[in-house]
Each structure stands twice: as structure tokens, then as C-alpha cells.
Amino acid sequence: MTTLSHDRYCDEILAQTDALRAVLTGADLTATVPTCPDWTLRELAVHVGGAHRWVGEIVRTRAADDVPEGKVPGILGPTEEAPEALDAWLAEGAAATADALREAGPDTEVWTWAWSRRTAFWARRMTHETVAHRADAALAARAPYTVDADVAADTIEEWLRIVSFAQAGGDPEAAELRGGGRSLLLEATDVPGAEWLIEFGEEGFTWRRAHEKATVAMRGPLTDLMLVFNRRQEPAGERVEVVGDAELLDFWLDRSSFG
């Protein structure tokens, strides 16, 4: 289920990158990112900007196969160490990728690693890649983090689709997300209708927008639910309530992390 338009995704790539740049401005770029402990803030930023450039190259060239990183201009980051150079590099990469996606439109056929071979996939993926990593940066810099409700909801739904795709593809962790008679409810307390019921069947899991009694329910503001669901925030805390079998929620989070 895609809830945003192609143009909106392109807008969000720019907006989320601008918000990321704002977090990085004045921050200690050598600080470790708690949710990605192998990276510093600078390395996180280069990862995001590199992903933008990689996707931009796929879209611009209408690539039918994966594009090796070595063939993507500028993917390794700016040549200068100055924070200003990193900021400009991030802005330029996001703008170029958004422009390429707008020019291609949502239905141009290109290579992807997933269920859809259309540019619409990349517009959505780069939006939520940036949403999630902006949260990583905000946590590392101890900066505030907010995201629009429709973007947060779509982040949850895209991740559900990715986990479902991984399960169908035989990912060993996602394959364990099964077992009849159990269910997980996500319930936003600040956005009407923002509720998702995940049901574990013998062959796998399914999900739908619904409010029903579940084995475990996680309730809280939509942004906080999204952050927990993407493992950027612990489920136990002042802003999120877990009711029922908390081990089932942990079971989901552990097996939808993909390392």
C-alpha cells in the first residue's frame, strides 16, 4: 500500500535530506551513532548521500542491472573534510536524484532489488531510507525529531512490505515470523485510523489496517511507533505502551532487523 504520490516522495527526499543536514550542522561528526554503532555521524551521512547517488545513477541511466558502486560518481563522499563540503555534497546528491526521479516519472522500468522494477519503488525507498537515518543522526546529536504523520505511516507500511518480501524470498530470520493464533497490533494514539494488525499464520504473516484484539499491542504517538518498528527506539519507555505478550513484539523486532 503506497499512500504518497510520486511527486510527494521526490519532495520528501529533499525535505528529509534538508532536515538531516540541519542536524549535522554544528554537530560532532566524529560521534558514534548509537543505533548504527559501526558508524560515526559523518559515515552515516556519507552512507545516505551515497545511496542517493547510487539510485540517481540507476534512474538516470535506466539501468537494467545493478550498478556497481565504483561506477557511481562521487559515491564515496566529498573530497574535502570540511563540514561545509559534506553539507553541499548531501544537498547536491539529493537534488540530482529527486530531479532524475521526477524526469523519469513513477512507471519507468529500472533495476531494483525488490518486488517492483519501477522508479516508483526507488522514490519511496529513498524517502524512508532518509527518514530512518535522519532519526539515527538526531539520536546521535541529541536533536529533536519529528516527521509528518502520513510519512511516518508510510514508513511503517513500506517496512512491512519489505519484511514480507524477505520472508517470501527465504530470508532465514523473516522465515521465522510465523505461527498461528498470534497477532501484533500497532495503534497510534494521536492519528485516527493509524492502526496495523499483523497476524502470524502457519505459512507466514499478513498485515492489514484494522483495530482488533491482539496477542500484544503497542500504543503511542505515531512517530514513536514508527521509530520502535524501525528499531530506532526501545519499545519500553514513557511514550510507548506495550500491552500483552511483550515477548511477541521482541520476536518480531529481532527477526525483522536483517542484521
Rank of each mutant, 00 (worst) to 15 (best):
G70F: 10
P73S: 03
P73M: 02
P73R: 06
G74D: 05
I75C: 05
L76S: 14
P78Q: 13
P78C: 11
E80L: 13
E80K: 15
E80W: 09
E80T: 15
E81D: 15
A82F: 07
A82H: 14
A82V: 12
E84I: 12
E84A: 13
A85K: 14
L86N: 00
L86T: 03
W89A: 01
W89L: 02
E92F: 03
E92T: 02
E92G: 03
A94H: 08
A94L: 06
A94P: 07
A95H: 06
A96V: 04
A96H: 08
T97P: 10
T97M: 10
T97L: 10
A98K: 15
D99M: 01
A100Q: 12
L101A: 05
R102E: 12
R102D: 10
R102T: 13
E103S: 11
A104G: 01
G105M: 12
G105H: 14
P106K: 00
P106D: 04
P106Y: 12
D107R: 13
D107L: 10
T108H: 11
E109L: 07
E109N: 04
E109G: 08
V110F: 01
W113C: 04
W113E: 02
A114P: 00
A114D: 08
W115D: 06
W115F: 15
S116H: 07
R117W: 11
R117C: 14
T119G: 01
A120F: 07
A120R: 10
F121R: 11
A123C: 00
R124T: 01
R124Q: 12
R125I: 00
M126N: 03
T127E: 05
E129H: 14
T130P: 08
T130L: 02
V131E: 03
A132Q: 06
A135S: 11
A135I: 14
A135R: 12
A135Y: 12
D136R: 12
D136A: 05
A137Y: 07
A140L: 00
A140H: 01
A140F: 04
R142N: 15
P144W: 09
Y145D: 04
V147G: 03
D148V: 00
A149F: 10
A149T: 09
A149H: 08
D150G: 01
D150K: 02
V151M: 00
A152Q: 04
A153T: 14
A153H: 15
A153E: 13
D154C: 03
T155P: 07
T155Q: 01
I156F: 02
E157S: 00
E157V: 04
E158R: 05
W159Y: 07
W159H: 08
L160I: 04
L160P: 06
L160H: 07
R161T: 07
V163H: 12
V163M: 06
S164T: 07
F165V: 03
A166N: 08
Q167S: 03
A168H: 13
A168C: 06
A168R: 15
G170A: 09
G170M: 13
G170F: 03
D171I: 04
D171R: 06
D171F: 07
P172F: 07
P172K: 08
A174N: 09
A175K: 11
A175D: 15
E176C: 01
E176T: 15
E176Q: 15
L177R: 00
L177W: 08
L177N: 05
R178S: 09
S183F: 10
S183R: 05
L184P: 11
L184I: 07
